[in-house]
Amino acid sequence: MLKNITLGQYFPGDSLIHRLDPRTKLLATIALIAIVFVSKGFCGFLLIAAFILACAASTGIHLKFLIKGLKPIFFIIVFTFVLNLFFQTGGEELVHIWIIRITDEGLRMASFMAVRLILLVVSSQLLTLTTSPISLTDGLETLFRPLQVIHFPAHEIAMMMSIALRFIPTLMDEADKIMKAQKARGANFETGSVVARAKAMVPLLVPLFVGAFRRAEELALAMDARCYRGGAGRTRMKQLKYQTIDLLAALAIAALLAAVILLNRFGPF
């Protein structure tokens, strides 16, 4: 049922990477993505892939989780590959059937793009798998805090995200209940044309929205009652603190960047 949907596929654990400051992980992921773009050859990709796999292995996350995460974008990867394969016309011809012409340059470019895409997805996955949504929110809030000078609502956005995370299971539960109640009144959510099915959602969505507004109102009152008055003057129980492992992570990323740059210049392929 609806409850089975897991969100923000966090994989709880206590590895070094799990224990990194969320800010470090956010910045390291951005850096990793940049490094993927910096790399000009497969040699660099190989090194990056090895780095990511080593990280994944150290967290105890099974490889199949990473592969599962690629499923939703499988089509995009194939599409990118095919597009590059057929429309990159430079280089030596390998196959030529009717109007389809595949060149070695095309094959290289297609593989390059596909691998790049896979690496991008897997590295950002490593972030969401090892960081709970709430500490991700905390990290984002702290990182964006300096932008409050230019009235960027860092606290408000973080608060909204965390409330959304808090209420997703509650609303899922409620949707499940309402669905059952309407089914008991003979409602049919499963069969019929697209239009009929969309119409069948009304008895589910109206009570769900009414309920969500009621909850929002009550929550606002409860927050007021506990002296909430926005981000100004607020402290946090858990302060984010950089530790030695964060420094090590930064060094590892820097080393990876240096290696990739060197491979770009001197790498064999």
Partner: peptide
Amino acid sequence: VTTIVEEDCAFGLEN
């Protein structure tokens, strides 16, 4: 308010 019990208890004091 929050997704972790102890953070919810801290909410008022943080405010």
